[in-house]
């Protein structure tokens, strides 16, 4: 009897539509984030994360409408990330029905924004997203702009700093592994998870169900995030949970 490790499907959304595609059996419209969110909810996902990759103001308004619709139908925690730059952005998402927001480059640009957001809205809804690349043995650096721009910041040190500033959770993505399907960067995950006392979500690289279990057992992650293995019906959330439980991990079945 213990706290369950979480499985978090992740959707990339552009102008109110799921991109990179979702291909469930029986789904009517693979681009409708509301339908996709409902499907993952039915499968027993523990949380949902949606990353807004929209660049325009109009697109952002659409995202708020999407969050509003999902929150009226899906009763599990919902995290929204992408383009969160001000407390007004956070307020708009929380009012629309998001439970947490994920802050990425705005934290790199102005770390005090994390303090401000945490004090104003509470640490429980502030997730700091970290995109890291390996730069040496046991060394990882923060990158922004989709992994193109180095910052010179050490990832483990940065995670500690973000915890100190009031982050409630870390969403850690390995840029080396993202989309590669060879598994999480377990050394990175473990280095960060062991360095902070807040929960860490492992992200980037999942290609099979053992990768999810490894993220918890070897990476010490508190939650695992995945997109494509679920989107294309390769595996369902219940299959993932059964598999992880079979490897001795506490899950919500």
């Amino acid at each position: 009897m213990a706290l369950a490790k979480r499985i978090i499907p992740c959707l990339d959304v552009d102008k109110g539509r799921v991109v990179k595609g979702v291909n469930f059996v029986g789904i009517r419209d693979a681009g409708d984030p509301i339908e996709v969110a409902r499907r993952y909810n039915e499968q027993g996902a523990d949380e949902l994360t949606m990353l807004d990759i929209t660049a325009t103001h109009e697109g952002r308004e659409t995202m708020i409408d999407t969050v509003h619709s999902i929150a009226g139908q899906v009763f599990i925690p919902l995290t929204i990330g992408g383009g969160i730059r001000t407390c007004e952005d956070i307020r708009a998402m929380l009012n629309a029905g998001a439970d947490k927001v994920s802050i990425n480059s705005a934290a790199v640009k102005n770390p005090a924004f994390v303090n401000e957001a945490s004090e104003r809205f509470g640490a429980q809804c502030i997730v700091v997203a970290i995109d890291a690349k390996q730069t040496g043995a046991g060394e990882w650096e923060i990158f922004t702009h989709g992994g193109r721009q180095p910052t010179g910041i050490d990832a483990v040190q940065w995670a500690r700093d973000m915890e100190g500033r009031g982050a409630g959770e870390i969403l850690l993505t390995s840029m080396d592994r993202d989309g590669v399907k060879t598994g999480f960067d377990l050394a990175l995950t473990r280095a960060v998870a062991d360095a902070v006392s807040i929960p860490v979500i492992a992200s980037g690289g999942v290609g099979n169900l053992d990768h999810l279990a490894d993220g918890v057992l070897e990476g010490h992650a508190d939650a695992v995030l995945a997109a494509s293995i679920f989107h294309f019906g390769e595996f369902t959330v219940p299959q993932a949970k059964q598999h992880m439980q079979g490897r001795g991990i506490e899950m919500r079945l």
Partner: peptide, 21 residues
């Protein structure tokens, strides 16, 4: 408290976040 471990030896992170019985 920060830094405590549970019965299985895993660290108990704070906040207590997620699904519990």
């Amino acid at each position: 408290e920060n830094g405590l471990i549970d019965a299985s030896g895993a660290p108990c992170k704070v906040p207590h976040m997620g699904w519990n019985q």
